[in-house]
Every structure is written in structure tokens, then in C-alpha cells.
Design a binder for these strands. Structure first.
Lengths: 326, 326
DNA sequence: TTGTATGCGTTATCAC
DNA sequence: GTGATAACGCATACAA
């Protein structure tokens, strides 16, 4: 330790932590010794003493899905600004992994956790009663003392479908996730879809709601090919996510359907790639940078002990590109 | 602590760490008490004692670039199999941030570090002499005691350009990064490009080598539009990365150039999206899953103290899709 | 097979 | 303004 080198035992600590009551001369001496010995604080010891790790967990289904990758990127930047590191966990969207991640942080591995809940349901609300701050990325389906950062799922979906209707679509299909008992993204966006149809005076046809188990590009492409091959009549397509929309565009191309002249397509998320697709992808932008910033801010504030769990629903905007052009 | 609850003071530790010499009865008792008290090991204390954190750092330029997102995903999975967590840092590809990350781990925040070096150069080799294992994601430009996991840049690029030549291209352009003094990805792939031209008996025309400061989709799209607008004559395009290729496809579409009939395009990385683009993107697959697995394996082995820094260069394969069809 | 003592490196408290 | 003391919770070594 720098004690031997410098002269002080724990004045070192004061110097490191920038305490005010240290004479300039001693501070200089300590700093010199530190540089000399290439001294490094032992973060593990500090963590033990402080009861903090300076690390937050970020649990998402899969980091390589563009939406989560972009969200993670923004979270890491926001965390860095607050001197926090981010440990990324992949849950594969399964309930078990999501619960396992909650246990990890419980071990004080993390000071707090941003958790994207997909597999967990309202029945698991009790599991969120953990002794550290949690911010859920998703709908307010839990009543526990956890923060929420959510997308405007209903309104965003409604606006997307209204956009299709405004552009003249009359038979609007939706590519969505499996039907579950839980309130989830699929259900909320489906609600928005139905509301928009209603407002536009269009009938709701269950045959146009296409449910998929996985929201992958591959699954979306396959499903769209099947829709066309099966003779389903549709002139608009609202995809649950941009990732699914990429697959859908591919599926339509495979089926020889032209976009936007025969079918108009809109996604949700505004991932970077959308602008550069051919045709470029219309979408709903939920402002994920703001969501990430808020998620980290909420967490950070609660780690510091100020304030209770809050809720934030981001704004959104519809971005019209070639895939829904006239 | 469970000591009071159970009966033993520190047999708890043995139970937790699965030591062999614990009677079944006591083990059961301890486990019961642990469950009862909802006992959790304090990882910070364990880290201090063990001198390990169970966390590795992964430093990449930006996690949201598809290639790094997919790589990170594979790294996280590989780490999880070895009971390691992954803390992700974004360096923005700047030398300063890359060096800063090295300092972080020096504080024993991480047991080891996987570092994608872009900004650092051979002159910084000394900075890699750190007291913990490092695996560089990139070329062997450093002689220090660090592991390397590299792509087959020269051979892969060569194969890509040969593929274009085989498909009849005679004026093959390349979209690459800025020229630097350092040995880097751009330079190596450019070497492959030149070798392939030579083998194919095609002349090397510097005007066909287009250098960009940023390898973004946006920059690539803009550059390609400029190339066409400027009257540059080319019938093949090798893009440094798939991300750039997405932008290039967009730029060609904007310029009214048809792919693959007028210009054939190939990228490098085999990101997931490539399969679903229209036209789908031909590319070089460097097997990033294998690279990630090897990077973590190398690091893990060195954390455990076995073996020295090794080097691994992944294999590759050319994946022909629509963007280079006849 | 189980318990006891000791120390990992840091910082909060309080005396000097 | 600086130093001594203690404690954070666990695991190693050794004693019982």
C-alpha cells in the first residue's frame, strides 16, 4: 500500500476520494507515491466496505436484436455518465432466466437492475420484491415497488395503423406475437391496431391477425410467404417490431408482392437499419434514447436513495418512409 | 448470517462451495436455514477474499453495430457457460477510451478483458502490459503478452473479391476505412483486395479504392451516391463491412443502379440482417461465434492461470447471395 | 467432519 | 489536518 511509501495510512483514502481537509503538501506526497508504486484502489474491498458495486445489470432477451442493441448502447452511455458500469445478461425471453437474473442482483452483484420482462407475468410480481432498485422495461403489469419505463404501445400502434389507413389501406394485416394470458407488448399493440381500425371505420377481421411464436426475421419472412401463398387478401401490414418488418419485406419480395404499391408495410422501434432498407421502412419511433436515459436516471436516483419507483412512458412519432409511400 | 440460524459458523461456506467433506445431515440443515433466512452470499466480500470478481470486460467501439452486437451476444453466452458475467464498455473506437478501459480492469474491476482495438496502435503496445489477462479482438499488432483472436482479413477479403471477379466483375471498387499508419482491418482487407485483383489479372486502379472516415451505413450510402454521380465506372463493390454494404445498397438504389445486374456487391461479417435484405447480401462469414467462444476460452484459461497468450485466427467462408448473382 | 482464528483493502468514526 | 481502530462478509489454513 501507499502507506509505506507515503507516510499516512488512511489519508490515502481521503486523497483518493477528494476529501477537503487534506493539506496540499501531504496530498502531493501521496499522489507522488501512488504514481510511483502504480497504486490502484482495490475495487472489491471498496465495494465490500461501501456496500455498492458501481455496476448495474441490464437484462434483455437477446442483445443482438437491433432494438435491444441500440437500447443497450444508450443505457451504457447514460450509465457511464454516472460512473456506473453495465453488465449485460441475456434471458432469451424466458421466465426462468428473468427470475434468475433477479436472484443474481440479489447477491449484491449489482446495485440495481434494468429488466426487460417478456416471460414473466403478473403472477410473478412477488419475485420483484427484492432489496435493491429495479426498473422494468415494459408495461406496468406489476404492482410491486419497481420503476417502469414503457413504450407508448397502444398509442404508437394505433398511430401506425392509422397511418396505413390514411395511405389508403383497407385490408390491414398485423404480424404479432403468440397469444398469452399476460398483458404484453403483442396484446397492447393489438389493442392499438383494433382501435385504429375502428376509428377508420374498417372492420376487424381475425384472419388478418397473424401470430408468431418468435419475433425473428426468419419467422416473419416465412409467415408472410405463407400468407400470400394462402391467398390472404391484404394491402397493409403492421409488424410488431422493425426486426419482424425486415423479415416481412423479404417475405413479400419472395412472394413477388411489391412494396408499397401492392402492400404497404410499417414497423415499430425505428432501428437504424430501417432508413437504409430498400424500400426504406416506415416505423414508429418510441425514442429509445430517452427511454434509456430515463431508465438509468430512475435507477440511479433510487440507488442513491432519493425518491420512490416512478413510471415513465416515452413519447413517439410515426416516421413515414418508402414502405408506406403512396 | 445463517450461522445463528443453522448451527455452524462457517460450514456454510463449505456447503455453498460444494466442498466434499460435509455430512449430509448438516448440509441439509444449512440449506434449510439458508432458504429460511433467504440468505445470499455477499459477492463483494467473496471477491475481496478470492481476489476475483467473476466479471470480464468486453470493450467494443459501439455495441449497436450489428457485428459487435452479435459478437457480444456470443461472448455473453460463452461467458455464462463458465459462470462469468460480462460488463460491456463502448470505446467509440478512440484510442483514449481504449486505454481508459485498460485502466479500469487494472483496478481489479474485471478478471480479464476482451478488447477490440481500433484506435490504439503498435506504439501503445506497452500499455497492454497489465497485470491481468487481455485478449485482443483484432490483428496481431502487439507483441505484448496478450492473446489474439483475429479474423482472416487478408484471405477473407481476397476470397470476396475473387468471388466478384468470378462472377464477371472487371472494375471492382472497394469501400474502406481511412488510411492510417497502423496495421488495421482496412489495410489488411485492402491487401486481400489487391491480391485478388492480381490473381484475376485485373489492374489496380486507386480511383476505385474509396476511403471513408466512418464505417456507417449513412457514410457508405453517401459515398456510393457520390461515386455514381461522379461518373466512376465500376461493376463490383467490396465493402469493408456488412454494415457499410447495407448503406451501399441503399446508395446504389438512390442512384438508380441495379444490383446485381449493373453492380455486384459483397460485404464482410455475415450479420443476420444480410440474409433478409432485398437483394440479399453476399458476404464473408468469419464465424464470429467461434471467435467469441475462443476469446472467452482463452481468457478463462488465462484467468485460471493455465497457459500463456495464444493466437487464434478464425476460418471463413464466402456466402453467395443475390447481391452477387449472375 | 466441523469449528476457530486471521486477513483480504477499504472507509466511517472518532480521537488526537 | 491526520491517525488509530474497527468492521464490511467471506474463505483459507489449521486445530479440534
Amino acid at each position: 500500500m501507499a502507506r509505506a511509501a507515503g507516510v499516512s495510512p488512511m489519508t490515502v483514502s481521503n486523497v483518493i476520494n477528494g476529501h477537503p481537509h487534506v493539506r496540499e503538501a501531504t496530498r502531493a506526497r501521496v499522489l507522488a507515491a501512488m504514481a510511483d508504486l502504480d497504486y490502484r484502489v482495490n475495487v472489491a474491498a471498496r465495494n465490500l466496505r461501501r456496500g455498492r458495486t458501481g455496476v448495474i445489470g441490464l437484462a434483455v432477451p437477446e442483445i443482438h436484436r437491433p432494438y435491444f442493441a441500440q437500447f443497450a448502447s444508450a443505457v451504457i452511455d447514460a450509465a457511464q455518465r454516472r460512473d456506473l458500469r453495465v453488465s449485460v445478461e441475456q434471458t432469451g425471453a424466458t421466465r426462468e432466466s428473468e427470475l434468475a437474473v433477479l436472484g443474481l442482483s440479489r447477491n449484491r452483484e449489482y446495485d440495481g437492475l434494468i429488466l426487460s420482462t417478456v416471460g414473466m407475468g403478473a403472477a410473478d410480481a412477488e419475485r420483484l420484491r427484492v432489496p435493491y432498485p429495479v426498473v422494468i422495461l415494459g408495461e406496468r403489469i406489476f404492482n410491486g415497488p419497481v420503476g417502469h419505463v414503457a413504450m407508448p404501445n397502444v398509442d404508437g400502434a394505433r398511430a401506425a395503423v392509422r397511418h396505413l389507413a390514411d395511405r389508403g389501406c383497407r385490408r390491414i394485416a398485423m404480424l404479432t406475437g403468440a397469444e398469452t394470458a399476460e398483458v404484453n407488448v403483442s396484446q397492447l399493440r393489438l389493442t392499438g391496431y383494433r382501435l385504429a381500425l375502428e376509428s377508420a371505420g374498417l372492420p376487424y377481421d381475425p384472419a388478418l391477425v397473424q401470430r408468431m411464436d418468435a419475433m425473428s426475421m426468419e419467422a416473419a419472412a416465412g409467415r408472410v410467404r405463407a400468407m400470400v401463398a394462402g391467398g390472404l387478401d391484404f394491402d397493409g401490414l403492421f409488424c410488431l417490431t422493425d426486426t419482424a418488418a425486415i423479415g416481412a419485406l423479404r417475405g413479400l419480395a419472395d412472394a413477388g408482392v411489391r412494396v408499397p404499391s401492392q402492400v404497404k408495410v410499417i414497423g415499430f422501434d425505428n432501428i437504424d437499419e430501417g432508413r437504409f432498407l430498400v424500400p426504406s421502412l416506415s416505423t414508429v419511433d418510441p425514442d429509445h434514447a430517452a427511454m434509456a436515459e430515463r431508465a438509468v436516471a430512475l435507477l440511479s436516483r433510487r440507488i442513491d436513495g432519493d425518491g420512490g419507483p416512478e413510471e415513465f412512458v416515452s413519447g413517439f412519432s410515426v416516421i413515414a418512409r418508402e414502405s408506406t409511400a403512396h
